[in-house]
Amino acid sequence: MLRLRPADLVILLITIVIITGLSVSIYGRTGEASQVRIEGSGQEWIYPLDQDSWIHIPGPLGDTEVVIEEGKVHVHDSACRNKICVTTGIIERVGQWIICLPNDVFVRIEGALETEGEVDDVAF
């Protein structure tokens, strides 16, 4: 019969504590979702979440089309092969994200007052 040994439990506990701490510091911040930050090809754009728009983000493979509609965001189409970003579906809360690795596009929803680097400052 398999039995856990002392160090197994210690390792398991340490891992759980670190993951919980990280998750809380990354996702736990409250705040109204209010803006959409889009990164691609070394550039960065910020769009308001409450204003519908259809955005073409240029990437190495072509355009990734990001749609903001009634406070929700999704990727309509992208010039990549797998379309994982499209199948990710709709995001609407702070901290949610959509990524298109092949076309180097990263979309995420933020609260109003977030600044670059905040996640890192809190986490580490």
């Binding site: 891992t15 993951i19 990164e39 994200w97 670059e116 996640v119």
Partner: peptide, 27 residues
């Protein structure tokens, strides 16, 4: 290499699924 600070946003789901998978694999 890729995402800058935003990489941390992806961390929790990765770490949690990794923990579950490694636990089963370890057993």
């Amino acid at each position: 290499l890729l995402f800058g600070q935003a990489a941390w946003l992806i961390a929790p789901p990765f770490l949690i699924t990794g923990l579950a998978a490694s636990l089963l694999l370890g057993f």
